[in-house]
């Protein structure tokens, strides 16, 4: 970050006036965003933490309650309920399995495509870049509807060639449906990740290639020894963003569950949080939903940090 030369000023009074001007104008420009950020990021986090330690109980007590509903402080009871709920952990397990398979495949394909498009092997990079990126322009929800229909044998051009499993169409059956959804997200986001890699590749200085060529490096050597190591930080970012995206997996399972009606309402933790909030699951309520969200955020954050640290150690 460049900053105006404030240290070179000898007179103290002038310095402080300038500093004040800097502070006031800086805050004036940053303030609208900062306020909106507080309302959208900070306040919900605080409100989630607060509501996660309360629960709504009827003041009369008893199973059906009597009297008014009132908020009762319950400490960490909501967290305990969530953490001992098997459905929460199987949701986390599904999301984890999803991520550990889907993210490497998607990032790998995106990197391969970017390397091919960036190489001498391809003459018209623009067309390819556009056709791989186009699915990103389709909202995840619409993509899920389209692929969902492509998975129903009656409508799909290819799904009727595959057998039924456990009474469900192949792509919507219990062992397969997670991978059917992995396909949806791969389809949508591969092109976006490819763009991240392409931008990183284009930022590599050309002299590096020239020097390598003079030293007799082949195209393959340049790819493996220069290009791939040089896009490391872009890969780190792409993987981190993908982990975060996977944790919040919601649109795809929500759409698919209207087609595969066997899917539970807590198939992924995000679905569980939503349905708990909306009272479609028991136990329900704002406190419980907040507890789920906070636990998920903690798990996601630790995963991202773990990945980041592992990556750093590998690079050293």
């Amino acid at each position: 970050m460049s900053s105006p030369s404030v240290s070179a000023e000898p007179k103290r009074r002038k310095w402080s006036r300038q500093a004040r001007h800097q502070a006031i104008s800086g805050w004036a420009f940053a303030l609208p965003f900062f306020l909106a950020f507080c309302l959208v990021f900070v306040a919900p986090i605080l409100s989630a933490i607060r509501s996660s330690v309360f629960t709504m109980k009827a003041s009369g007590g008893g199973l059906f309650g009597g009297g008014e509903m009132e908020e009762v402080f319950v400490g960490l009871e909501n967290f305990q309920t969530v953490a001992t709920n098997g459905a929460f952990w199987s949701g986390i397990g599904r999301v984890f399995l999803f991520g550990i398979v889907q993210i490497p495949i998607m990032i790998g394909v995106a990197l391969l495509l970017a390397l091919l498009i960036d190489s001498f092997l391809v003459r018209r990079p623009g067309i390819w870049r556009l056709s791989y990126f186009l699915p990103y322009a389709i909202p995840g929800l619409v993509a899920a509807i389209v692929w969902g229909y492509l998975y129903i044998p009656e409508v799909s051009p290819f799904a009727d060639m595959l057998p039924e499993i456990q009474g469900s169409p192949f792509f919507l059956s219990p062992p397969i449906v997670l991978w059917s959804m992995a396909n949806m997200t791969t389809w949508t986001f591969t092109g976006y990740n490819m763009l991240i890699f392409l931008a990183a590749l284009q930022a590599i200085p050309g002299d590096l290639y020239e020097a390598a060529r003079i030293d007799g490096a082949s195209g393959w050597k340049i790819t493996t020894q220069i290009k791939i190591p040089m896009v490391g930080s872009a890969a780190l970012l792409a993987v981190l963003l993908s982990i975060i995206g996977t944790v919040q997996l919601f649109n795809e399972p929500t759409v698919v569950s209207t087609l595969a009606t066997w899917m539970p309402k807590d198939y992924t933790p995000m679905m569980m949080a939503y349905n708990t909030m909306m009272g479609l699951l028991t136990p329900s309520g704002a406190g419980m939903a907040s507890a789920i969200s906070i636990l998920m955020a903690l798990i996601a954050g630790s995963l991202a940090v773990l990945y980041f640290l592992a990556q750093r150690r590998l690079q050293k």
Partner: peptide
């Protein structure tokens, strides 16, 4: 790096 969907539930509250 914040999973924004997670904020939606408390934001609704």
């Amino acid at each position: 790096l914040m999973p924004v969907a997670l904020l939606t539930v408390p934001m609704y509250l």
